[in-house]
Nucleic acid binder design. Sequence first.
DNA 1: AATGAATGAGATTTCATTCAT
DNA 2: AATGAATGAAATCTCATTCAT
Lengths: 193, 193, 193, 193
Amino acid sequence: MAKKKINPQELLDAAEELLLERGYSGFHFGALSEKLGIGRSTIYEYFSDKDELITAYMDQVMNRVIEDCRECAPLSGLNRLKGYLNVFLRYTQIQRIIQILPMLDLSASPEGGEAVAKLIEQHRLIHRWIVEAIEEAKSMGEIRSDQSTRLIAAMIFSSIQLPDVMQGESVTGEMVIDLLYQGLHPDNGSPNR
Amino acid sequence: MAKKKINPQELLDAAEELLLERGYSGFHFGALSEKLGIGRSTIYEYFSDKDELITAYMDQVMNRVIEDCRECAPLSGLNRLKGYLNVFLRYTQIQRIIQILPMLDLSASPEGGEAVAKLIEQHRLIHRWIVEAIEEAKSMGEIRSDQSTRLIAAMIFSSIQLPDVMQGESVTGEMVIDLLYQGLHPDNGSPNR
Amino acid sequence: MAKKKINPQELLDAAEELLLERGYSGFHFGALSEKLGIGRSTIYEYFSDKDELITAYMDQVMNRVIEDCRECAPLSGLNRLKGYLNVFLRYTQIQRIIQILPMLDLSASPEGGEAVAKLIEQHRLIHRWIVEAIEEAKSMGEIRSDQSTRLIAAMIFSSIQLPDVMQGESVTGEMVIDLLYQGLHPDNGSPNR
Amino acid sequence: MAKKKINPQELLDAAEELLLERGYSGFHFGALSEKLGIGRSTIYEYFSDKDELITAYMDQVMNRVIEDCRECAPLSGLNRLKGYLNVFLRYTQIQRIIQILPMLDLSASPEGGEAVAKLIEQHRLIHRWIVEAIEEAKSMGEIRSDQSTRLIAAMIFSSIQLPDVMQGESVTGEMVIDLLYQGLHPDNGSPNR
DNA sequence: AATGAATGAGATTTCATTCAT
DNA sequence: AATGAATGAAATCTCATTCAT
């Protein structure tokens, strides 16, 4: 009846909400159309199938993350890491989204496969940037070089989900870096440095 | 055809494999029965529906984790934290499993609801233990007291997924604690302590 | 294949046929869709489950019966009873349908429960009307007052299934009332009144 | 474990309870075995399939009814009718059971078919007896001969379900016959005859 | 004789997707 | 461009029935 005008971005926004609320399996076009107050079949005018929509959404988030990360490029070493962390803590979703990724490549239509491959590639790219920043910080003498780069990278990467674990209490990249930098050792530096 | 004997534990083991391979939405009794070479309906003799099986599986994992954590009780402060971390790093699955939890409590049958509530309670219990260990370590002077207990707890909790992020390369609780303890500051302690 | 247009009323009509042919347990959406030459899942666009469809059907029949009974309101006493009987004899189905009722309220979804409760209420309403008509007839001196109102009501109520028992041979309310009114006593009234 | 001794009659008794409680579709071997506290498969030692059990049960009821009806043979006319009515009012179940009959002959295994045919035959037999008694009563001048024998028979037959309609209040054959005999006409006979 | 365990056939239900308007 | 209506394919679930012990 009421022919509501649709804008593709609205679709992606609603998709995000739904994905985060119900996860991949609870994500139906039925629920999506209901949330938007549009007809179920209307979605097909924009995305040829479910996985394409999800992929498009994930792609969008990834692009934003990548873009934000690129803005940290001028920074160096520890500051870049801090910058990355702030980005990650802003995009809480990506953690969950990354976990949805493997569900897509099974039914992998040829083109779908490419899109997923691209996502995985971007994922690796971010990891590589972190590793580079760590190595730079090490070579600059900013951080100790006797800790495993991979482990540090992994800890920073997994910090992505801190906001989830901390349930509401806000965390910033500075806080995390401070913790990692100072360490828990009671004799490390001065408390109020 | 051949009436293969089934043991409930096999079911849970296969369920774990399937859940980790395909996630909640890719988890079907069809796939499970195929994996085990048994009739689909046989599974219903053991679990009255899909969610009950998944809940039972999660319950089992949680119980093991809790049990293993309890074994750390004799340790104190930092050592207990190290112990917990080692437990978490052993049970990589729980991270993903915790993310499946919210999918269960929607359709929540009365009893199902209880089971899920129990899981959430156990989840909180573990978090409380971590907090207690951190506070003990602080009061014992083992770690600095000017870092947020909640943030430390969150970092330890989110370390659960390190094995996932590090894709195969092994991590131990000692490594993580060492990193957190020494910190990244180049002047902290002696490198080879 | 060919997307046959469906009208909800057709569904209820076919459902009636099927219910009367095969009873509650022989009533499947499979059989229904076959009878109508439509896809099985199409039915779910109209009724969210089997019981809802059956309840909707029964509700429709009940409403018609109630409506027809209401039309007898202007009549009084014996004539109203005659009117009711004619209605009942027209809706042979309700007898069987009433027997299906108890099968529905077990699984009773919240809303389903209400629908069933409504049916039972309507059922009682009709019974009350019969009782009232009998009492009126008694007070008007149309019928003897030394017979149990409840028994008379029950006999009229159970006449509903006369068409079933008489297998094809037609019965009218007049015939039944005549039999009940004159009685079998050979000396009652004049044979050819 | 506990090997409970089973007696075939118990099975039929429990089957009756279940049939009346839940109808044909709610009648499962699972429910039956639960009610008796025996193993589900044990039932197969006594009845080779579900329909055979139901048929056996119905057969038993029918035989009892037929037998009881035969005991009315010495009576004549109106008294025999009264006798039949008393029998019917004792076996409330048969009404429901007769409605289950048609559900059996669909899957009709060859032997099952015979059993069902037998039931239908017995059903007709009873109807014939009623007709004979009515005709006898007519020829004896006990009842008016200007009322349709078939209608009278149908009314008596459908009285079977009076106990159901009257919900608990007891009815006797005498009461029904009295009502039918005296009729509702206020001038018929003396009230207290 | 009694049973627990396993299963296949079929009913119920959900949902992505297509199609005509 | 937007939608309501219809559908097939696949998943969930139930139950009569078989089989080995």
